[in-house]
């Protein structure tokens, strides 16, 4: 366990922390700018989150990075932002399934393995978060009818984020900021 936890260098851990902060701030700003229940801002914040996730996974190519990123996001959100403990299972499970999906291609240098990881993480965490929404609104099932389309719209943004992530990584490789 200790060996697993000490596999990341300080530089890689800093990258994970910076990207966690950037994703939190960017999604928060887009959500606030769009005024909450706005489909465009909902798509936009998911697009930004997935793009940042793909870039981070290309920058830190080590199995377990997505899981660590998720754990840090959850810890900080729970302790400081009052995010519910119920977010923990869907996010963790999503990250675990994504890590499993990325395991066979862990030695590939291309962009497709991180894209696969981000795609699996988005699908699993979104599906499970609908279950969490039910837990929050179980007193009024009518509100669930409103939640499901919004999660679906958010997922469309995540799909767009996969494409913009690939594009961003290509540009960053061309600029020499991300190496093979």
């Amino acid at each position: 366990m200790t060996r697993f936890l000490s596999r990341w260098s300080a530089r890689e851990l800093v990258v994970i922390g910076v990207f966690a902060a950037a994703s939190k701030v960017a999604t928060l700003v887009v959500a606030l700018a769009g005024g909450g229940l706005n489909p465009i801002s909902l798509m936009g914040k998911n697009l930004i989150f997935t793009t940042l996730l793909v870039v981070m996974l290309c920058k830190v190519r080590r199995p377990g990075t997505l899981l660590l990123f998720t754990v840090i996001n959850i810890i900080v959100s729970m302790l400081l932002l009052g995010a519910s403990v119920t977010l923990l299972p869907p996010m963790l499970l999503g990250a675990l399934v994504a890590e499993l999906a990325m395991w066979p291609g862990r030695r590939d240098g291309g962009v497709w393995n991180p894209v696969l990881g981000a795609a699996v993480f988005d699908v699993v965490s979104k599906v499970l978060s609908v279950g969490v929404s039910w837990l929050f609104m179980r007193e009024n099932p009518a509100m669930m009818v409103m939640v499901v389309p919004f999660v679906a719209i958010g997922y469309l943004g995540s799909v767009g984020g996969l494409f913009s992530g690939v594009k961003a990584v290509k540009e960053l490789r061309h600029a020499g900021i991300i190496h093979e």
């Binding site: 936890l5 000490s6 596999r7 990341w8 300080a10 851990l13 800093v14 994970i16 922390g17 910076v18 966690a20 902060a21 950037a22 939190k24 701030v25 960017a26 700003v29 660590l68 990123f69 754990v71 840090i72 810890i75 900080v76 400081l80």
Partner: peptide, 18 residues
């Protein structure tokens, strides 16, 4: 260590990114 460093960086940089 692997949770403290990114967590600390995240908390430190949220106001900076804002």
């Amino acid at each position: 260590f692997c949770i403290y460093i990114p967590g600390a960086v995240m908390i430190r940089f949220i106001p900076t990114f804002m």
